[in-house]
Amino acid sequence: MAHDSHSGHHIVSQRVLITVFASLVALTVLTVITAQFVDIGVLNLPLALSIAGLKAMLVVTFFMALKYDNPMNSLILGIGVICVTVFLVFTLFDTAFRGDMPNVDSQTISDTEGRNLNQEAREAREESAGAQH
């Protein structure tokens, strides 16, 4: 039972674990330095997130041993990450562009569509819009 190395039981060596841990600490120091002491303007945010992403990759690959694991588990993680991305990006489609419809108050409606509407309908609409304000 000393060396049990059948599928799914890969032993990650101590050397690898120590190297990964050292890199993680180094990246933490790097992200603090770049964010707190060196101002790189608009790149601050992407850089910090890239470093965080890299750290997460290291943890997932070696500490969680996905590199040596059943590919199905990597697929599961991938699908989860894609879902989060969809959630974030599709919500931003709304929140980042909120109010992108051209102004729709009664004035603009009659400006763009007034020719096709008969006079009474337009007046009725403006009246009711006025009543709401």
């Binding site: 032993i11 990650v12 060596s13 101590q14 674990l17 120590i18 990964v20 841990f21 993680l24 600490v25 933490t28 943890v59 070696f62 500490f63």
Partner: peptide, 12 residues
């Protein structure tokens, strides 16, 4: 991070 490392070591 250290605790993550030690837990990986414990599995090892």
């Amino acid at each position: 991070l250290a605790s993550s490392f030690t837990v990986a070591m414990s599995i090892h």
